[in-house]
Nucleic acid binder design. Structure first.
Lengths: 193, 193
DNA sequence: GCTGGAAGTTACAGACCGGTAACACCCTAG
DNA sequence: CTAGGGTGTTACCGGTCTGTAACTTCCAGC
């Protein structure tokens, strides 16, 4: 039971937490609802009383994961109140940490890879959440006083996304090891314009 | 039978071709061997006479796909013999084309996302092929006379990888739409150093 | 103590999965 | 013409998947 997350809380919360963890580690199609409920210390019927299908559980997991990600942005604001440039650098450092501490990439991107049906309910949620993520980065760049904020944000987004994928294919010693250097010199060159 | 690739050739070749196509479109775990053989106009027994398991078929598909990718590099050399810088620009254009014409990303990266077991036979193949891809880009940058060839190649690699993922999450109108601009200005700035 | 709702249990349906056995066929090389 | 290898066909194995039915147990609020 390597995936046990069975502290005593309400079954729905345990299921959601456990499912996030297991989907992240083993992939969505690599985990069955039985395995989730067992690791969550409950059973299948209880899962289906709280979620109408596995697909809905997937969507709920993605929303929960995105909410955790959004909370990190609030930490940046708390750590560097008003200093948007410092927050941008904090973001770079945070990403670099993730690249070495987690080899399984972004849950939303991974879900997009696994759920190939164009009308899957998770697809629109993924798109929404990724656009919100991008918008937040654009706003941060703009508020940091950078001219071409959209272009910088898009470039950083692609580097970020690429690094998380690269970790999965060649490990954290590959191209992603240079992420900080790339991002910092990019930010510097945009600021110089 | 949307995936029919049933021109008359030897069963093994049809299976390999069909499997590549279906894995690409629907994901590895989203396609069963029955569906592959049916689309290839043959049957399961024949598949298992040529491939000892689905895992081996997956590995063989990845190798075949990588071989097709390598052939593209040879086209660059043929189109711009000796002119490595022109070949680098051709690579950028080729990537941009893929970003709009194909919304399913890189087969190797996708496979790495789907096959989470660390000892899966495909994992080492993916790593090998991705490293070879990166080495080729490094060599191209170096031969184009660029100083920090490794850093440029790694940066372009991450942008490329990120763009292919981004297409899957938010579509080709997202950050990946700026890929050419990003890559070209990167190359220009590295050349200026 | 009683009651009502949430949670657990067992069993099952129906589909699909990867993989195999046994046998019939066809087509080409000799 | 014949022998044999590659191929096709059918049926099957054991396992897993999502999802449901029917029933029991537990526990908090009154």
């Amino acid at each position: 039971m390597t995936d046990g997350v069975a502290e005593r809380s309400r079954p729905r919360d345990r299921i959601l937490e456990t499912a996030q963890d297991m989907f992240h580690k083993h992939g969505i199609k690599g985990v069955g609802v039985d395995a989730i409920t067992e690791a969550a210390g409950t059973n299948k019927m209880t899962l289906y009383r709280h979620f109408e299908s596995k697909d809905e559980l997937i969507v709920e997991c993605l929303r929960a994961t995105a909410a955790k990600g959004a909370a990190v942005w609030d930490e940046f604001e708390a750590q560097h109140p008003g200093d948007k440039l410092a927050q941008l650098h904090a973001w770079v450092r945070k990403v670099a940490d993730m690249l070495v501490s987690d080899s399984r990439g972004c849950d939303m991107a991974n879900a997009a890879v696994e759920l190939t049906e164009t009308d899957h309910p998770a697809r629109r949620v993924i798109k929404e959440l990724k656009q919100a993520q991008r918008d937040r980065l654009v706003a941060l760049c703009r508020d940091a006083g950078i001219g071409q904020a959209e272009l910088l944000a898009d470039t950083l987004s692609l580097l970020f996304e690429g690094a998380r994928v690269s970790v999965q294919t060649v490990g954290s010693e590959g191209p992603s090891a240079q992420f900080v250097r790339m991002a910092e010199s990019l930010i510097a060159s945009f600021r110089a314009r």
